[in-house]
Simulated scan of single mutants.
Amino acid sequence: MSVDEAGTARGGDGVDEPGWEVDPDDESGVAMAATVGRQIKAWRESAGMRAGEFGAAIGYGEDLVYKVEGGRRIPRPEFLDRADEVLGAGGKLAMLKRELAEVRYPKKVRDLARMEARAVEVSVYSSHGIHGLLQTEQHARVLLEARQPAYSRDEVERGVSARIARRSVFEREPAPSLSFVQEEASLRRPIGGRMALRCQLEHLLEIGRLRSVSLQVMPLDCESHPGMGGDIEILKFDDGTAVGRSGGAFNGRPVSDPKHLRILELRYGMIRSQALTPRESLAFIEQALGET
């Protein structure tokens, strides 16, 4: 895949390699990228290699090497693996992948992913589109590419990677309790085309059949319900605390006050009661898939 200067450097083999720019407003990300860059540069200089020579040896351009060493670019895992091998670092550079695993995602997404990773209960109502945790990679990419003002290609790639990484919540042990209510309209819009919609519906069926997941559809023939004002998301943690947010309450700000949370829980409970049951919803999605 070819991306512009904001998201790539051209490797020595002529293949465009996507990377991630460092968000200057992300202090922890800037510090981590700078630290990793200095370590790579120290290993390269210790090996007596020029930046261009080193770049050619690992299959990346000299320009990217300078940007990584200067802390202006977050290296991909493959970069670190090749660098470790060429420089004989004995795994010391490759292990930096763990430190950079989160930094490559936008800070606000990292914060959300951390909360989702801690939550023992996740309750979500999506009023317009497929919720991020339920999106296929293709669906997420089309949405991000359609955004206005337009994201750069680098921002699109980071956004897609972040959404896919968040899906690890479905693989946790012990599994959290996950509840989703999707509006029927979100299952009908062919975002990315008919084949992309089919893949998205198939993915919803797969997720909806997990024992830890309750997936419900709010049918269009439901005249009104408490979610008409916007999305709702509630995360509960094992220490008894919780955080919630709704586009239709409290100016869309995250809330943790028990009084505010009770309002969101009441609304979400009523939404679930008016939606199709999980069994009916899976049958509904299967029917929609057959009609696509």
Rank of each mutant, 00 (worst) to 15 (best):
R163E: 01
A162R: 08
A146M: 11
E116F: 03
H128T: 15
Y125M: 09
V120R: 06
E121G: 11
S127Q: 04
A165K: 06
A150N: 01
R167Y: 00
H128I: 15
A146T: 04
E116M: 08
V142E: 05
F170D: 12
A146K: 02
V160R: 14
S161C: 15
G129M: 09
D154A: 10
A150P: 03
R141Y: 04
L144T: 10
R153K: 12
A140R: 03
E116T: 07
R147L: 07
Q138E: 15
V122T: 10
E145I: 05
E121T: 13
A117R: 14
A117I: 09
L143S: 04
A117G: 01
I164T: 14
G159R: 05
P149C: 06
A165V: 08
E157L: 15
L134R: 04
A165W: 06
S123C: 13
H131D: 06
D154G: 13
Y151W: 02
Y125K: 11
L144W: 01
R167G: 03
E121Y: 10
Q135M: 05
A150K: 02
V142A: 10
A165M: 07
A117P: 02
A140F: 02
R147Y: 00
R147T: 14
S161Q: 14
V156A: 09
V122Y: 01
G132L: 13
Q138D: 13
S161G: 14
V124S: 07
Q148V: 11
G129N: 11
A150F: 01
R147F: 08
H128P: 00
S123K: 15
Q148Y: 03
P149I: 11
R166L: 01
Q138F: 09
E145Q: 12
Q148L: 11
F170Y: 07
Q138S: 15
F170P: 06
Q138H: 15
S127F: 04
R147V: 14
P149E: 13
I164G: 04
R158W: 12
V120Y: 00
E145N: 05
R166W: 00
S161I: 09
L144M: 11
Q138P: 02
R167E: 04
Y151A: 08
E157V: 15
L133K: 01
L143R: 05
R153M: 15
G132V: 15
S152T: 04
V120A: 05
V122P: 05
A146P: 05
R166Q: 10
R158E: 03
V122L: 08
A150H: 02
Y125S: 06
S161P: 06
S127V: 14
V120S: 10
G129S: 12
H139D: 04
E157R: 15
R163C: 13
L134A: 12
A162F: 03
V120G: 05
